[in-house]
Amino acid sequence: MIKDITIGQYFPGKSAVHRLDPRMKLLLTVLYIVMLFIAKGFLGLAVGIIYMLAAFLMSGIPIRMMLKSVKPILPIIVFTGFLNLFFITTGDPLVEWHFIKITTGGLKTMVFMASRIILLIFGTSLLTYTTSPITLTDAIERVMSPLKVIKFPAHEIAMMMTIALRFIPTLIEETDKIMSAQKARGADMESGNVIKRAKALIPILIPLFVSAFRRAEELALAMECRCYHGGEGRTRLKQLKTAPRDYVALAVTVLFIVAVILLNRFLPI
């Protein structure tokens, strides 16, 4: 059943990573990504691994959850891995068989790129695991708010994200209900070719859209009744405050980046 799909991967906790200011977490994630991309060699990447490992151990997120986050990306990793393996022909040849040629350069690049992607996923997953969607939305709004000067709709985007998060579970439940109702009227959604199946979706999609529009209309009305008029002059219940630990985290991260730069310079392997 659709109900079983989990949306939003927040894993509640009270670890140091959880308690960091979400704006700082966003910044740190960006810095971490930069760190991964400037690393030229395996030693540089190793610094990234240490950083990740430290953050992960502090967060208290189960390893199983982290591994699960890589699963959907696995085909991409494998695919790019093969591309790297077969098409990069620098370095010493390892295997040569008909038109297939595998070299040390290819193997190295494959391992390097795969590790980088996995580290990237781990980093962003850690961010979403340790930050509730609402806090994250909030942080995005605040980080982007200076852009309001150039008419960038930071508040509107954040509001849309909040409402989306709020209504996803409701609409999933609704889809489930409509599907059951149409099945009870003999709708067949499991057999037939692609066209037949696509057609079978009509009795589900139309009621779903009609309902989503009705909900949107009612929600807009309720928001108006509660004096909503855009982001102007709005205050917030929760104020974000940076604590000393946020700056410590920032300093540590910067140190790691410096380490990567130094390694790039002096030990680029």
Binding site: I178, A181, A184, G186, A187, I202, P203, P207, S211
Partner: peptide, 30 residues
């Protein structure tokens, strides 16, 4: 399943056809 007809809560939210006639016809056609 056709021996047991089930009308869900707020069943008007499952209407989808262009006309009332076609909507009532959905079950019998299936």
């Amino acid at each position: 399943r056709f021996k047991v007809g089930l009308v869900f809560q707020y069943p008007e939210y499952q209407l989808f056809e262009e006309t009332v006639y076609k909507d009532i016809a959905f079950g019998p056609k299936n």
